[in-house]
């Protein structure tokens, strides 16, 4: 085996770490996600009784609340991974990738939360959108992380790019509480919240609460599953450029050698 061949193999081995989770664990989570989602569908559509006030429209809650939870979880993971990347002792490519992957999943599910909320709002409030504090905060959150993803997409030198992305993620993250606070203040100074007023919000019990918790569990599993898959894809994408270049160079060198010998 040539020196170059051995180098190549060594590098491939070093870059084999394209998985976040053990394949067996990942497969288990995949199946568990599927089962949990099917159960949420069954309970959400048939198992749980219709709401006394809102009727069947309330069933959207079994998806809406879990998607919102998933989005917050995803952005939290992005922030933690970014901080770990910036901390010199824990700086590793895995945190940068995880931050980006998690933010992608988070943005998609923030959009889903907004769409589901909008559908529910049309059915219950009669409008697609209301300037409620939570709605506005969620919309701002969506754009905050959309900007972060746009920044990530601009390619450059990987190391400086990763540091820049990590700082941007943290800047976005510390903005979330201030946005939440200011929007809340803005909407409540003029009018008291009616729909989300805790005193008016009925407690939920029994099958409805169980379905909701099942939804949260199912979407948490879904989050882990999606992040794992997307991470693998991102790692393979990163490896593709390097490997293709190496392969092309190797082929070219071989070509030159064979023609040189003859």
């Amino acid at each position: 085996m040539s020196q170059r061949g051995r180098d190549q193999r060594g590098r491939d081995q070093g870059d084999q770490n394209t998985r976040l989770l053990n394949p067996l664990v990942a497969a288990g989570i995949g199946w568990a996600t599927l089962v949990a989602l099917v159960l949420v569908g069954l309970f959400g559509l048939w198992g749980a009784p219709p709401d006394k006030v809102q009727g069947d429209a309330q069933r959207l809650m079994y998806l809406h609340v879990p998607t919102a939870w998933l989005a917050y979880l995803a952005f939290f993971v992005t922030a933690v991974a970014s901080a770990l990347y910036l901390w010199p002792r824990t700086r590793a490519r895995v945190w940068d990738r995880l931050a980006g992957v998690s933010a992608e999943v988070g943005v998609i599910f923030t959009a889903l939360t907004l769409v589901l909320g909008s559908l529910w709002g049309r059915a219950v409030w009669g409008v697609w959108w209301a300037w409620d504090a939570r709605l506005v905060t969620t919309a701002v959150l969506f754009f905050l992380y959309l900007g972060y993803l746009a920044l990530r997409r601009v390619s450059g030198d990987p190391a400086t790019g990763a540091k820049r992305n990590a700082i941007a993620a943290l800047i976005a993250f510390i903005d979330v509480p201030i946005v939440h606070f200011s929007v809340n203040w803005w909407r409540t100074l003029h009018q008291q919240a009616t729909v989300f007023n805790p005193a008016l919000n009925p407690e939920i019990h029994g099958v409805m609460a169980a379905t909701l918790w099942l939804g949260v569990l199912a979407f948490t599993l879904l989050y882990v599953f999606l992040v794992d898959r997307r991470y693998r894809l991102a790692a393979l994408e990163d490896g593709l450029d390097d490997r293709e270049l190496d392969r092309a160079i190797a082929a070219r060198v071989g070509e030159v050698q064979t023609t040189g010998v003859s």
């Binding site: 701002v140 900007g147 920044l151 601009v154 946005v179 200011s182």
Partner: peptide, 23 residues
């Protein structure tokens, strides 16, 4: 400075800045 030196800085800057300065 985050957007400086990037190819798409003119379009990136508003997208990054405007959500952050909501408050």
């Amino acid at each position: 400075v985050l957007a400086a030196g990037l190819r798409t800085r003119e379009t990136l800057l508003p997208l990054l800045l405007l959500p952050v300065i909501t408050p």
